[in-house]
Design a protein around this nucleic acid. Structure first.
Lengths: 237, 237
DNA sequence: CGACACCTTGAATGCGCTCAAGAGGCGTGG
DNA sequence: CCACGCCTCTTGAGCGCATTCAAGGTGTCG
C-alpha cells in the first residue's frame, strides 16, 4: 500500500541465467534474440507491501515477475477490494489497451521484476510475431483463469471457495517448488478473503473447519494438505 | 440447450458488405486481404437456444458473431451455472490454448456467426502479425471485462450488481443501436441471475425495487432507464 | 515487556436464498 | 373467439449462510 520506493540496479545479469527464462514470455526468444533483449529489461526490486503500479496509472512499462508474489486487485470507490489474481515468477504484467493499468499490483513479500519500457518493447516485438504469439498465449491463459475465477466467485459456497483456492494455489506452485502437500501461503487471510469474495472471518472459520475435519493442517505461513482427495470433493470440481 | 442443428450456406456474401467488418477482428485486414479472407469463413445460422459449442469440446474453429446474442457459460458438476459473458456482433470466439473450448456458448435468440476452420485461419494469420495484434487486442479487452466482472461478483450487493449490469449492457449496445435509455434485454431473468451470481428471484425483486424507486421502467423485452444518474449512483461505480 | 498486526472465535444480524404460490404472456387447438 | 397448457416472471414467507460487530488470542519486533 505504501508508495513505491524503487531500488534498481542496471541489469548486470544476462537473460541466459534468468530463473524464469523458460516459463516467461521470453521462452519465445532464441539465444540471439535474448542477447538483444537483455538490454531492454532492468531488474527492479520491491519490498513487502510496496506498490508496483496502480490502477489508472499510465502504463509505461511491462514487467516480468522474477521472484516473489504480488497481489493484483481492483478497488471500489468505497474501499471494497477484489483481488483479481496473484502474480508469481514468470507472469507477465502490463498488458492493456487503454494505455492505463486496469488493476493495481503490489508486492506481498519481497519481489523482483524485470521491467521493459513499453516503447522499446513495442519496437522489439514489431518484427517478431513469435513473441507476440507467446504474449497472446499468456493473455488467453489468464482469460481462462479469469473465467474459472468467475465461477468460483459467483457460484461457490465459502467452503468450496477455500478448498478450490488451496488446491489451485498448490497447483500453481508446482512449477516453482515441485509437487508437495505443504502449501505455503505468503498472502494474508485478508488477501485470501478479498480473492475469494469473502470476509476475513469467514476465511478463518473455514480454515479452522477444514482443519477440524482433518482435511488440512494449519501451519506457520501456510497449510499442509492432509487429505487431498477430500479437499477435491469439497471443492466441487 | 438443444443439440446444435446447423444450417449453413456457402458464404455468398462478400466481407465487403459485412455488417461487423469494422468492429470485428477483420478490421485489421485491408481490402486485398479481405478478398482472400472471405474464402475461409462460412456463415452459420443458429436458432434460439441452440448450442454453438460446448465446454470441453475440441475447438475446431473460431467464430465471429455476425448477428444476435449468445450466452457464454460454465457449469459446475452439479448443474450450477455461471454465465461468464454475453457475446454480441463483432465478438470473436474460440481462442484457447488447450485446444478445447473452456466455456459453452449458445444462442439466445437467432444467431448468425462466421466460422473459420482453425487450421486455415492459423495459416492465414501466420504471416500477418497485424491480425495477430488485433486478436491480442480483443483478448486483452475481454480480460479487462473479466476483471471488472470479478469485482462485481465478489464485492457488490444485489442491487449494485443489477444496476451495474443494466448500465454496462446499455453501454455495450451503443455501437450497435446508438445511445438510448431504452435497453433491450434479450436474455431471460435466469440468464441475468447466472451472470450476476444471484438467483432469479433476487433479480426479479431487484428489478421491481428499481422500478418502484423510479430508476427504471420494466417494459416488454427490456427496461427503460428513467434515471441514469441514480442508476450510476446505485451501481457504486 | 508492551505495542501492534494478524488471526481466531463467538454472538447476533441481515441479505440473498429456498420453497411455494400466484400472475401474466403466448401459442395451440377446439 | 375463448380455453387451456406451458413457460417466464413476480411476489411472499421463512430460513440459513456469510456478514457484522465485538472480544480474545498469538506472534513479532522494537
Amino acid at each position: 500500500m505504501k508508495p513505491s520506493v524503487v531500488t534498481f540496479e542496471p541489469n548486470g545479469n544476462s537473460c541466459r541465467d534468468c530463473s524464469i527464462r523458460e516459463s516467461s514470455v521470453c521462452s519465445a526468444l532464441d539465444a540471439a534474440e535474448l542477447r538483444q533483449f537483455e538490454h531492454l529489461g532492468r531488474r527492479v526490486q520491491f519490498g513487502p507491501c510496496e506498490t508496483v503500479f496502480s490502477e489508472e496509472d499510465i502504463a509505461t512499462s511491462y514487467c516480468n515477475v522474477l521472484d516473489g508474489v504480488m497481489r493484483l486487485y481492483k478497488l471500489l470507490p468505497d474501499g471494497r477490494r477484489q483481488i483479481v489474481g496473484f502474480a508469481l515468477p514468470g507472469d507477465f504484467l502490463g498488458m492493456n489497451i487503454s494505455g492505463r493499468h486496469n488493476f493495481s499490483a503490489d508486492a506481498i513479500g519481497s519481489v523482483a521484476v524485470c521491467q521493459f519500457a513499453k516503447a522499446a518493447f513495442g519496437r522489439f516485438i514489431e518484427d517478431r510475431p513469435h513473441l507476440l504469439r507467446r504474449i497472446n498465449e499468456l493473455a488467453i491463459r489468464e482469460l481462462t483463469q479469469a473465467r474459472e475465477h468467475m465461477v468460483l466467485l459467483g457460484r461457490r459456497s465459502a467452503e468450496e471457495k477455500v478448498a478450490t483456492f488451496l488446491l489451485s494455489w498448490r497447483e500453481r506452485l508446482i512449477p516453482l517448488n515441485g509437487p508437495s502437500n505443504t502449501v505455503p501461503l505468503p498472502m494474508s487471510r485478508q488477501d485470501i478473503a478479498d480473492y475469494l469474495g469473502l470476509t476475513i472471518e469467514t476465511v478463518s472459520r473455514t480454515f479452522t473447519k477444514l482443519e477440524r475435519d482433518g482435511v488440512i493442517e494449519i501451519i506457520h505461513g501456510g497449510i499442509s494438505l492432509l487429505d487431498p482427495a477430500r479437499a477435491e470433493a469439497l471443492a466441487a470440481a
